[in-house]
Design a protein around this nucleic acid. Structure first.
Length: 966
RNA sequence: GCUCGAGUGGUGGAAUUGGUAGACACGUUGGACUUAAAAUCCAAUGGCCAUUAGGCCGUGCGGGUUCAAGUCCCGCCUCGAGUACCA
């Protein structure tokens, strides 16, 4: 009987689907385990071999946990809103829902053929109204909440209103907008409804605000920083300008400290935690107010700055404002106005990323205005410079050139004073920023103090004169939540007199309307502006035609849609109870499953999805909806699988002439170059001076394992190569190999379908794990897959020979048991440590040993099938079945490791001389140290090594090693 | 620049608390089986020297600690990822 993987794999995939083998129950006496993969976006290109890496790992773990007696939740679904489907819709007019549906089918087929143990009954799709109903609902909950710094949690907006009614807002300790005006309870009572709504918006956890965005007029849309290259849009190369727009924002900054603190308890990769820490960017320092010196006594302006070095305040020799700073236009003197305006205009054309990336160019402009130093009362010139960003801190800096390199460079460039306030430090060449070695000088009452002492003292002094206080600042900014797109969740929001109103839970979901075009409207409104049926009737509580808008009972609906991360910020909880139509999830379900025990996905989500989800989870926790304020206990980043690109040398001047790799290398190294050059010239006619080579990507399927190009296939591959010429004419043409990210455009993607076809899913699963450690990035090279495939065949032959099954009910030998139990031990340790590559080797060793032992004992072969089952589930099911079981292997108990089978009585000691192993000596393990030494010293090889010398020292580590020194 | 990873044969990688460097595979070479091929099996395979016995070198580089270092410490180099005029 042969190992017919195609038949076996199809059979068991059908069995699992028919029997719902992996359906998880929300009630169980077993302990729970929740294994989750990061939400996939179903792209049109389908899966390549890099995608399943993490899925295989989580599947092995999930299957292992089932063997270990856990009730395992291992769901899968689709983050199915997104840009590519919308882009395709714009180009072809095809509705994104149709494209998405097709892509999901491809994904599903590819996932199914790999034999994953997903509970498909729990599948969710973010673009399904039944799902996004709850995304909309969470949004309304955020709207109806404010952040109470006193209790350090989100609370219902009603509690804030009742405070306003009782005592106004003077005692409210909230995380809110900066421009809050103090009012009394009487004031509140007298405000109009609209005024009240405006004030409340400043406190809500999701709110409307003017946000500066990268606006691309030609595309009619806002672009992300990385969609802009050299100041123009990546797609189309259109100009981009900075523009203010009213958009929904999420007050994630309310959670900055808790998001930081929460990281400590998470078993997540350190680099990932580090990048979140940096992203949140907590810094301690002081907020300082500088009064602007004004000849006009009626207007007094104050510049607020945040500084981490308040101790250097006596070193301030100028101030720098972001060009966008509100005060700039107000304080600039008439003489300087032209220069300042020109500078502001120039800055607006630069993207934030541009401004940040360009460290070398120093630019700025003097406003003509001066601020007053809070202590010396000296005038300080106020400059603007694009190295100061409006979005960070207050958008203003107190510049201390002697202590900050950027300030130093700016001062040097504009010939501004650089006063030295450090004792015994030379600042003629560069600034001095070492806090630890700082001793303050030339600073009045701070002289002689260290950084720490001076900081404490100056903050007290600032508070005393009312011009500053200690402050903690976060780099984290509130997250913009509006997108000017079609294919996303619509907001459950309509506008009454321009003020946003939430639509109640019982009327959700608000479904995405049909539109004729997916582009922005001619007036620049988002695509939903094209919808004719997009107004809210507050009487009948449904969506009606725009023509019915009467600004009394029928109002316009929001035209923006939600961003990609909206749907992915609570999906892991929705999986616990995915079909609940009454609640986002039942308390029973969330209390049973609690949180994700293992989350596997790419590190690219470090500061996006993984930060927003933590924020939503903490909010849900504050609302009492979830019992854990972190949603994933353990997280693993799987490494990227890189592709091995094939690059073919082409003569730049003759794009139809290709030269084999080794000839080009010889030529370039000037080895035998004359001979090669003659051949090249004969073929191409290019002179030596003009000769240069390009490297073009060639589809990897056109190249064999010896890097030789299949010339005939290459000619057929693309029309332009039909009449290509090659050097050598009749010898093999070799390509250069380079490891790069796997990508369609580099023609180095390997599709799993072909491998499944040729070797089967079990081989692919094993091979992806065998490649190397899960977390490391590693190159894909199909050459080695034959190794794991022949391992599976060897495994099969342990159970079968040509006549059929050969296992028997016989007692296993000592060696059989030893092999089995050392395998159990190692595999169990490996899985617990996510070291899947080493267990594949362990299986190979085990099967090699059992084969040479000619083991046929069921006592060994049964547990072996279970051990292999998480990795290669199809073959394991088949073997299990043939061993006589009628139930799936999925919940068969994991074999129990027993130490007694591994106990050894002797050890082959390595005998080293000066640390170098020279020979081995078998000695009993219970032999004493002295006896070992005596035995070793008496050995003839020891005497030969020593050649009569007396050893200085003999180190004996029983059970390990003997080392003779001398 | 900063932060975090990584660097081991021709290749992917192994070496769990410092204790036999190169497990397991791929590839290559030789052999068996076969009319032949495929499949399968067996053997060899870090480099250099040596007929053998054996010796020397060897985990990016330079130092150090130790009886013993891929592993620990100090200083560098290279590659990868993230991030950035963060005040």
């Amino acid at each position: 009987m042969n190992y017919n993987f195609q038949e076996i794999e199809a059979k068991w995939q059908k069995y699992w689907a028919d029997n719902q083998t992996f359906k998880a129950e929300n009630k169980s006496a077993k302990p729970k385990f929740y294994a989750l993969d990061m939400f996939p976006y179903p792209s049109g290109a389908g899966l390549h071999v890099g995608h399943p890496l993490g899925y295989i790992a989580s599947d092995i773990y999930a299957r292992y946990k089932r063997h270990k007696g856990f009730n395992v939740l291992h769901p899968q679904g689709y983050d199915s809103f997104g840009l590519p489907a919308e882009q395709y819709a714009i180009q072809t007019g095809q509705h994104p829902a149709i494209t998405t549906e097709e892509n999901i089918k491809t994904y599903r087929r590819q996932l199914d053929q790999l034999g994953f143990s997903f509970d498909w009954s729990r599948e969710v799709r973010t673009s399904d109204p039944k799902y996004y109903k709850w995304t909309q609902w969470v949004f309304t909950q955020l709207f109806n909440s404010w952040y109470n710094k006193g209790t350090d949690k989100a609370e219902d907006i009603e509690s804030l209103i009742s405070i306003f009614e009782k005592e106004g807002n003077k005692n409210v300790n909230a995380l809110c907008d900066e421009d809050i005006v103090i009012f009394s309870s009487d004031d509140w009572e007298n405000y109009t409804s609209k005024q009240k709504q405006e004030i409340l918006l400043k406190y809500r956890l999701t709110y409307l605000a003017e946000t500066e965005v990268n606006w691309c007029p030609a595309l009619g849309t806002v672009l992300a920083n990385d969609e802009i290259v050299n100041g123009v849009s990546e797609r189309g190369g259109h100009p981009v300008v900075r523009k203010k727009m009213t958009q929904w924002s999420m007050r994630i900054t309310a959670y900055a400290q808790r998001l930081l603190d929460g990281l400590k308890g998470l078993d997540w990769p350190q680099p990932l935690k580090d990048s979140q820490t940096n992203w949140i960017g907590r810094s301690e320092g002081a907020s300082v107010g500088f009064n602007v010196i004004s000849s006009d006594n009626e207007k007094s302006y104050k510049i607020e700055v945040f500084t981490t070095r308040p101790d250097t305040i006596f070193g301030v020799s100028f101030m720098t404002l972001a060009p966008e700073h509100d005060l700039v236009s107000k304080i600039t003197t008439p003489e300087q106005k032209a220069e300042v305006d020109a500078y502001i205009e120039a800055t607006a054309k630069r993207s934030e990323r541009d401004r940040m990336a360009d460290v070398k160019t120093i630019s700025g402009a003097f406003t003509g205005a001066f601020a007053e130093h809070p202590f010396t009362k000296e005038p300080i010139p106020i400059w603007i410079g694009d190295y100061v960003l409006a979005g960070y801190g207050t958008g203003a800096v107190m510049s201390v050139p002697c202590g900050d390199q950027r300030d130093y460079d700016f001062a040097k460039h504009f010939k501004i004073d650089i006063p030295n306030i450090f004792e015994g430090v030379d600042i003629s060449e560069e600034a001095f920023a070492d806090k630890e070695k700082t001793i303050i000088a030339n600073s009045d009452f701070l002289n002689g103090l260290s950084y720490k002492e001076a900081t404490r003292k100056i903050i007290d002094a600032l508070e005393e004169i009312g011009q500053g206080k200690g402050k903690i600042n976060y780099r984290l900014r509130d997250a913009v939540f509006s997108r000017q797109r079609y294919w996303g969740e619509p907001f459950p929001v309509y506008y009454v007199d321009g003020m946003p109103q939430m639509i109640a839970k019982e009327h959700l979901p608000i479904e995405l309307p049909e539109v004729e075009k997916y582009l922005p409207t001619e007036t620049g409104e988002p695509p939903l502006g094209n919808a004719t049926h997009w107004a809210w009737n507050t009487v009948t509580n449904n969506v009606v035609s725009n023509s019915e808008i009467n600004n009394a009972t029928v109002w316009p609906l929001e035209l923006n849609t939600m961003p990609g991360w909206a749907g992915s910020s609570q999906y892991f909880n929705r999986y616990m109870d995915p079909h609940n139509e009454e609640e986002i999830f039942s308390q029973e379900a969330i209390n049973y499953w609690q949180d994700v025990d293992l989350y596997i996905g790419g590190s690219e989500h470090a500061t996006g999805h993984l930060l927003y989800s933590r924020f939503w989870q903490k909010f849900m926790f504050d609302k009492g909806l979830v019992s854990k304020d972190e949603f994933a206990k353990k997280l693993i980043n799987q490494g990227m699988i890189t592709g091995t690109s094939a690059l073919l040398y082409r003569i730049t001047q003759r794009p139809d002439v290709f030269v084999s790799k080794e000839l080009v290398e010889d030529y370039l190294n000037e080895e035998a170059s004359n001979n090669i050059f003659e051949q090249i010239q004969e073929l191409s006619g290019v002179s030596k001076e003009n000769l240069s080579f390009d490297k073009i990507h060639v589809d990897v399927s056109l190249v064999n394992t010896s890097d030789e190009l299949d010339i005939n296939e290459f000619r057929k591959w693309q029309l332009e190569f039909l009449h290509a010429k090659f050097l050598p004419h009749n010898g093999p043409v070799k390509v250069l190999r380079e490891v790069e990210k796997m990508s369609k455009s580099k023609y180095n993607v390997v599709n799993p379908d072909a491998i499944c076809e040729e070797y089967g899913a079990d081989s692919l699963r094993l091979y992806e794990m065998f490649l190397g450690p899960l977390e490391q990035s590693k190159p894909w090279n199909t050459a080695g897959i034959t190794g794991v495939h022949s391992f599976l065949k060897k495994l099969w032959r342990l159970y079968f020979d040509n006549d059929g099954a050969k296992f028997e009910d016989v007692e296993p030998t000592k060696d059989n048991l030893k092999t089995l139990h050392k395998t159990i031990k190692k595999v169990e340790e490996d899985i617990e440590n996510f070291s899947f590559n080493t267990s594949v080797s362990t299986f190979m060793i085990c099967v090699n040993e059992l084969s040479s032992q000619k083991c046929t004992s069921k006592t060994i072969l049964e547990p072996l099938a279970i051990l292999v089952s998480p990795y290669a589930p199809h073959i394991a099911e088949e073997l299990w079945n043939i061993l006589g079981h009628t139930e799936s292997i999925a919940t068969a108990p994991f074999p129990k490791f027993e130490e007694k089978y591994l106990v050894e009585s002797s050890k082959e000691y390595p005998i080293s001389f000066n640390g170098k192993m020279r020979f081995k000596l078998e000695l009993p393990l219970d032999m004493s140290k002295d006896d070992i030494e005596a035995a070793v010293m008496a050995h003839e090889k020891t005497q030969a090594q020593l050649q009569g010398r007396a050893p200085k020292k003999v180190i004996v580590v029983p059970g390990k090693i003997v080392n003779i020194v001398g």
